[in-house]
Structures are given as structure tokens and as C-alpha cells.
């Protein structure tokens, strides 16, 4: 029944134009990232200063940057960096938030109080300050970036899950389970989990672009991905610094950020509707 349910959810997602568009955009970036060496027309770090600041042309579909590197290739390879960091970080934070949130919402009250205090104090730290502090201690790099994102995002996810769990544990169908003698584990995994994952999924997919932006921002500060590894942040930074010499760079470097943001957001909303049987009626009927 569950595999059939998943196919039904996929069909529902595809039948929603926005969801299908989101899925398409996300798949486009994933394919770009996975097959970067085949998709990219040129070497993303090969310098050719003679051809710097070229506008888009047949030789360089997206033009070149201040060092004459092929911009399209850099964007394709940048997708690799961006998605690897964003998906890993958001995924880990999502799992962490899910577990902590459900413990807080379903567990004993004292544990809930302790965890809520923890979440609140974590999220009262400004994200950038916190990131800088962690980078100072651990040193810059991809791993540090992921660690920062995980630590910063967990409280928000955990709070969402906790609120959902608390609201649902008083719901009639959960009381019905308890009255039938269901164990806490069964209530948690069979009944609460599927009902709280939906809202988390949409939050997660909407946060992927935020992490991509954070990566870009930290890379701008030279605290994220180290050059010459192509990252959308680095490319955007290069674009800003060269905005007078080659205004097309900023626009082209901004496009993947905009498109991936839209893609993940549409996908998130589409998933939420597709995963909820209550909103699936039109497809079934």
C-alpha cells in the first residue's frame, strides 16, 4: 500500500503545474551537478586572461569572467558545490530537528523544558556571528559551513516539529490509538511522524536556497568555499566587483540562485499538497 501511495503522491506532484515546474528546475540543477564534467563546455578554472569580460557568444554561451574563465562552466560546477553543501547541511539539520522536536513534543515535560530552553538560546544568536565564531574555532572550509548550517537550523526545525507534535498528541485519532493500547513507539512513528514530516519538508526545501545564499555570503567573505573552486557565491562576488566592466556577469551569476530558489520553493509547496491525502482529492477523482 505504501509504494502505491508514493506513486500516487508523485502523480499528484506532477499534475500540479507549479510542483512539476519546481521538480523540473531542481532536477535540472541536480543533473548539472552530477554530470558537470560532461555538461560543462569548458574547464571552469582554466584561465585565459586575453578573453576576459566577454559578453555571451557562441564560444562562451554565458560569457567569461575577469580572468577569462567560461562562466557557464563555472555555474555548472558551482551547482555541484552549492547542492552538495546545501543538501547535506539541510538534510542533517532536518533529521536532527525531527528527532529533537519529536522528543520535546512527545517526551516528558522536563525534557521538553530543557530542549525548548536550548532551542531558544541557540536561535537568539545572530547567524553570521555564530558562523564567524565557529569558523574561527574550526577553520574555514566546506565541513565548517555544513556544521554551521546544521547547528543554526536545528532549533527552527525542532520547534516546528515540536509544535506539530504537541498539537497532534491531543488530537482524537492519537487518543484513539492510545485507547486501543498502541505503544508510544507506534504512535510516534506510524501516526505522528507522517503527519509532521510534510510541513518539515516544505520548510527544508525552502531553506535549501537560504543555505546556498549563506554559502555565497561566506564565500564572499573568503570564509566559505576557497577559490578557485567555482561556487555561485564566488561567481556572484566576482560579478559584483566587476559590475562596471561587465554588467552581464552579475545577471548571469544571479540567475542560478533565483532559479534554484524558485525551484526548491515550488517543489516544497507541491510536495506538501501531494503528500497530504486531504488535498489530493482532485487527482484521485
Amino acid at each position: 500500500m505504501s509504494s502505491g501511495g508514493r506513486f500516487r503522491a508523485l502523480r499528484a506532484l506532477l499534475s500540479d503545474p507549479m510542483g512539476a515546474l519546481g521538480l523540473g528546475l531542481v532536477l535540472l540543477f541536480v543533473v548539472m551537478a552530477l554530470f558537470a564534467p560532461w555538461v560543462a563546455p569548458a574547464d571552469p578554472i582554466k584561465l585565459n586572461v586575453a578573453e576576459k569580460f566577454q559578453p555571451p557568444s557562441l564560444a562562451h554561451l554565458a560569457g567569461t569572467d575577469q580572468l577569462g574563465r567560461d562562466l557557464l562552466s563555472r555555474i555548472v560546477y558551482g551547482a555541484r558545490t552549492a547542492l552538495a553543501i546545501a543538501l547535506t547541511a539541510v538534510g542533517l539539520a532536518g533529521v536532527g530537528g525531527l528527532i529533537l522536536g519529536m522528543i520535546a513534543g512527545f517526551g516528558p515535560r522536563w525534557l521538553d523544558a530543557v530542549l525548548v530552553l536550548l532551542f531558544d538560546s541557540m536561535s537568539s544568536l545572530p547567524m553570521i556571528m555564530f558562523a564567524l565564531a565557529v569558523i574561527t574555532i574550526v577553520g574555514p572550509g566546506t565541513g565548517t559551513l555544513i556544521l554551521v548550517v546544521v547547528l543554526v537550523s536545528i532549533p527552527a526545525y525542532a520547534r516546528l516539529i515540536r509544535a506539530q507534535t504537541l498539537a497532534l498528541s491531543g488530537a482524537d485519532f492519537i487518543v484513539a490509538e492510545r485507547a486501543m493500547g498502541a505503544s508510544s513507539a507506534r504512535i510516534l512513528f506510524r501516526h505522528l511522524l507522517p503527519n509532521v514530516v510534510g510541513p518539515l519538508l516544505i520548510l527544508l526545501s525552502m531553506d535549501v536556497p537560504v543555505v546556498i545564499m549563506l554559502e555565497a555570503g561566506l564565500s564572499y567573505l573568503n570564509l566559505g568555499v576557497r577559490p578557485p573552486t567555482p561556487s555561485w557565491g564566488n561567481i556572484l562576488y566576482d560579478g559584483y566587483t566587476s559590475i562596471r566592466a561587465a554588467p552581464h556577469m552579475v545577471v548571469i551569476a544571479g540567475l542560478p540562485l533565483v532559479l534554484s530558489t524558485l525551484g526548491f520553493t515550488f517543489l516544497g509547496e507541491g510536495l506538501r499538497d501531494a503528500l497530504d491525502p486531504r488535498l489530493r482529492r482532485r487527482v484521485a477523482g
Binding site: A171, D172, F173, V175, A179, M180, G181, S183, N195, R278
Partner: peptide, 30 residues
């Protein structure tokens, strides 16, 4: 196992993501 509860709001007492078939056989699984 020997008692059962019928709720005032019958719809709300059924898990929204479970089919009717799963819901009525849930006690056996539990």
C-alpha cells in the same frame, strides 16, 4: 483489548493518512 472507545467526532478519530481498511484493522496490529 476488551474495551473500545467511540469518539464524538468520528472523522477526527481516524488517522488522516490511513485508509479506512488500515484504520479498522489497526487494533490487530497494535
Amino acid at each position: 483489548r476488551r474495551t473500545a472507545l467511540m469518539f464524538q467526532d468520528a472523522t477526527a478519530s481516524l488517522s488522516p493518512r490511513m485508509t479506512v481498511g488500515e484504520a479498522v484493522t489497526e487494533p490487530f496490529v497494535i
